[in-house]
Nucleic acid binder design. Structure first.
Length: 259
DNA sequence: ATGGTAGACCTTCTA
């Protein structure tokens, strides 16, 4: 089973690009972030025609996440627990049914810039809530994949020009520590776990010719429970999609699980 | 030191 995560940067502005990739890659499950629309405006029919079941947690203008799956989705949960006042649509969780069910979460972790504002404290608080949810889910001792745009550059090797990110929320020591703390719970980062783990990026800014200069960062990640990591067969970044017409600034990250 | 791009939407915010 192949599970992908992709920050699509508006599903409606990107529908043609998205469908092109779905037909090319034929993934079993796709977690989308930054759909930038309310549930009613998600083009679900276009994906249902390709055989996908659709779960959406949308929001007007900003954020918004979705899960698309060829096999039925059960136990759908919208929103990250831990703060009733949080209205940002950044977390959607569901169980992909099958002989070996897999729980999947589509995560759009807050960007957190600028660092000296409440946006950064919100980011860190959100990561703390994600950690609490991960502790609950790990207790099930089942295959679990927490995938998405984490907005964290884990290590200097994950940026073409790490110096340029030192004052950015994505590369703050506190952000990186919180990401490491998630992994220390017993989650395996899929991309780093596969043989080789070549230096590669998942995001290139639209500005200043970042793609042409390969000035990218690796901020989209897949964290796996031990029961999922045991079944990990591969993890690839679909880099070429960034060179298409009307690209998202992110590209898909795909994990393959032997279920 | 600044500007460079993209999307939603109404004018500026977010990234």
């Amino acid at each position: 089973m192949r599970i992908a995560t992709w920050n699509i940067n508006s599903i409606n502005a990107r529908l043609e690009t998205a469908l092109r990739w779905f037909e090319e890659a034929a993934p079993d499950v796709v977690c989308l972030q930054e759909i930038k629309c309310i549930d009613e405006k998600f083009p679900a029919e276009a994906f249902e025609r390709l055989g996908y079941n659709v779960a959406v947690h949308g929001q007007k203008t900003y954020n918004g996440v979705a899960i698309l799956s060829k096999s039925p989705l059960e136990d759908v949960m919208r929103g990250l627990p831990g703060d009733e006042s949080d209205e940002q649509a950044r977390y959607l969780e569901a169980v992909v049914s099958g002989p070996v069910p897999v729980r999947v979460a589509s995560i759009y972790l807050p960007n957190g810039n600028p660092v000296s504002t409440e946006k950064f404290t919100y980011k860190l608080a959100w990561m703390e809530r994600l950690k609490a949810r991960a502790i609950e889910l790990l207790a099930y001792e089942e295959p679990l994949a927490l995938v998405g745009d984490y907005n964290v550059i884990p290590e200097p090797r994950d940026a073409a020009n790490p110096q340029a990110w030192t004052s950015d929320a994505l590369f703050q020591p506190a952000s990186r520590e919180a990401f490491r703390a998630l992994k220390w719970l017993g989650l395996t980062e899929a991309y780093m776990a596969v043989d080789g783990a070549p230096e590669a990026y998942t995001f290139w800014d639209y500005q200043a010719g970042a793609w042409q200069r390969n000035n990218g960062i690796r901020i989209d990640h897949a964290l796996l429970s031990p029961q999922a990591a045991d079944r990990l067969k591969g993890c690839v970044i679909d880099r070429h999609v960034r060179g298409w017409d009307k690209p998202s600034d992110h590209v898909p990250l795909i994990i393959e699980l032997d279920l």
